[in-house]
């Protein structure tokens, strides 16, 4: 033992210079971060000053990109609300003691997590109308219901898994305490377990919802005029790649960054006295 304590020391008690000590590692990290920032910043600056056509930029913002943005935002709001709600029920199914319910929830998650969202969208978009004779499918603009249904079904599976993990992380004693006070299983779940599971699952749910935002880009395949479509329209008529690319990036970040902030806020709100001492 005495030997291992003296490792890295010379006989007279001074530290030997090692190749990678804590201080050099810290400096190295900062240097890499600095170079990275410089590189990326320079690249973006170069694009903005040499590639972006500001007149075109202003021209395509409205109505092209604003419309695409609002459309995507509406789909996200509805899809998010529905997928989180449905996901809670999927999660409850996954922790159910009833074999049948549990098996159905498990199969649901396996299928919707195990096949690509793009495939699921095509099944709904092309598959469902095929039950009707050609041209007699009663719903016009079927791509919008498809978008909502597809995003909801797919992300409910991921949210369900997050909720299941959140419920599993709540100690068993919580439900026992609730039951011992005369509360039913449903009351115990609603009042005691789920609020705690929700906090446990928040980070994972937030993560999934950010992915849902980005998954709207797949809707371009089923003819929803979203942000990627807007990019392709502009690019194919003007042959300018970077001006619409910058707009697409801004549009997505305008949704995903605030979404991250909302999740952080919700996490801080369910702190329950932890750091407020």
């Amino acid at each position: 033992m005495a030997e291992s304590y003296s490792e890295g020391r010379t006989g007279d008690g001074e530290y030997q210079e090692q190749f990678l000590n804590d201080k050099t590692l810290r400096r190295l990290g900062a240097a890499i971060a600095g170079l990275f920032t410089l590189g990326v910043g320079g690249f973006i600056a170069a694009i903005i000053f040499t590639q972006v056509d500001f007149e075109l930029f202003v021209e395509i913002i409205h109505p092209q990109f604003v419309n695409a943005f609002l459309r995507v935002l509406a789909i996200i709001l509805v899809g998010s609300l529905l997928s989180v709600t449905a996901g809670i029920f999927v999660g409850l199914g996954r922790v159910s003691n009833t074999g049948f319910t549990n098996a159905v929830a498990t199969a649901y998650v396996e299928f919707f997590r195990g096949t690509p969202l793009l495939f699921q969208l095509l099944v709904i978009y092309v598959g469902i109308p095929a039950f009707w004779p050609p041209g007699e499918f009663p719903i016009s603009n079927w791509q919008y219901p498809t978008a909502i249904i597809g995003l909801t079904l797919n992300h409910a599976a991921y949210v369900g898994e997050a909720v299941r993990g959140g419920i599993d992380a709540v100690p068993e004693g919580q439900m026992e305490a609730a039951r011992s006070l005369g509360m039913s299983y449903v009351q115990g779940m609603r009042e005691v377990v789920l609020p705690q599971a929700w906090r446990n699952a928040l980070a994972a749910i937030g993560n999934d919802q950010v992915i849902l935002v980005k998954d709207t880009s797949l809707l371009t395949v089923i003819a929803v005029p979203e942000l990627i479509s807007a990019f392709r329209n502009v690019n194919s008529t003007t042959f300018d790649p970077w001006t619409p690319i910058i707009l697409v990036a801004i549009a997505y970040l305008m949704i995903t960054v605030p979404l991250g902030k909302i999740v952080s806020y919700l996490e801080a709100r369910s702190d329950w006295g932890g750091d407020r001492r």
Partner: peptide
């Protein structure tokens, strides 16, 4: 009353 209290933390 339980050994581990089991108070509702929220």
């Amino acid at each position: 009353v339980f050994q581990s209290f089991n108070l509702f933390p929220h």
